[in-house]
């Protein structure tokens, strides 16, 4: 495997609280390859978010190895768009660059071009309160893309949206990630969403999270909506549903 971006080996994570120790993640190993879209699904509270936080270096791992490709740059997209209400859309999208002291002409132009390309041209100088939920989520994605990450970690990025916007935004995100040739690792508890987006789906058990199964998704159809129409879609859905069903 020459295109491996990320290799996770025997990852474990325990939390210490006054009431005792909680085992969140137990011995997880998997790889992520370049330009792959991997989804992790599992019941809520199974430690999915913890896994993402560890990969984004927001939390420490307890043991195991995370081998990253040299100079691997990670972008993190949260559940909530977390746009700053006092900044314009453009300034919000530039936030990551400002923090990294990389706000130069070239990068600003790149961000503007992204915003223009993905339907936010007329909103550069507007404030987040003037945008719909779907648009805000798109700005949040562009804010993540602005720092030119090699891999994006997406933490249930659509869960705050209503159903219709959800379908639309996942369509947008899939299109954006494909055309920008990005690798993505997304966690979700929505089986249909995972099948419509992912190349591979990793199913986690309930806490402490272990890998139950990994599915390779082979559905023709380029976009999430096309995939949802495919006959294979319901086959995968049944399989994954059975995997998760035992946990509830």
């Amino acid at each position: 495997m020459k295109n491996k971006l990320l290799e996770i080996q025997n990852l474990r994570k325990n939390y210490h609280t006054q009431n005792g120790e909680i085992y969140a993640i137990d011995n997880i190993s998997f790889n992520i390859e370049n330009q792959e879209f991997v989804c992790i699904i599992g019941s809520s509270g199974c430690g999915k978010s913890t896994l993402l936080n560890i990969l984004a270096e927001l939390e420490e791992k307890s043991s195991g190895n995370i081998i990253k490709k040299e100079n691997l740059k990670i972008g993190y997209m949260l559940q909530d768009d977390a746009l700053f209400p006092w900044l314009t859309i453009l300034d919000n999208a530039l936030l990551g660059l400002v923090i990294e002291n990389k706000k130069n002409k070239e990068n600003i132009e790149y961000v503007i071009s992204l915003l223009e390309k993905y339907g936010l041209k007329d909103f550069l100088n507007k404030y987040p309160s003037e945008l719909s939920g779907g648009m805000r989520q798109r700005v949040a994605l562009i804010r993540t893309l602005a720092i030119k990450p090699d891999i994006l970690l997406l933490d249930e990025p659509f869960s705050a949206l209503d159903y219709v916007s959800r379908l639309k935004v996942s369509e947008d995100v899939s299109k954006i990630l494909k055309s920008e040739k990005k690798t993505a690792l997304m966690i979700t508890h929505d089986i249909a969403e995972a099948i419509s987006l992912a190349d591979r789906i990793i199913v986690l058990s309930k806490r402490p999270a272990k890998i139950k199964n990994i599915y390779k998704i082979n559905i023709d159809g380029n976009s999430p909506l096309e995939r949802r129409k495919s006959k294979l879609f319901s086959t995968y859905y049944d399989k994954l549903w059975k995997e998760l069903d035992n946990d509830i």
């Binding site: 972008g75 949260l78 977390a82 990294e100």
Partner: peptide, 29 residues
């Protein structure tokens, strides 16, 4: 202050000072 905004700043590897100046003070305006 909204914890997710702090998480966002940390995900960009912001320093404590940057979190203060770019997030904490403006949002407590």
């Amino acid at each position: 202050i909204d914890e997710t905004k702090i998480k966002l700043m940390k995900s960009f590897k912001a320093t404590k000072k940057q979190i203060l100046i770019k997030l904490v003070i403006p949002s407590s305006y």
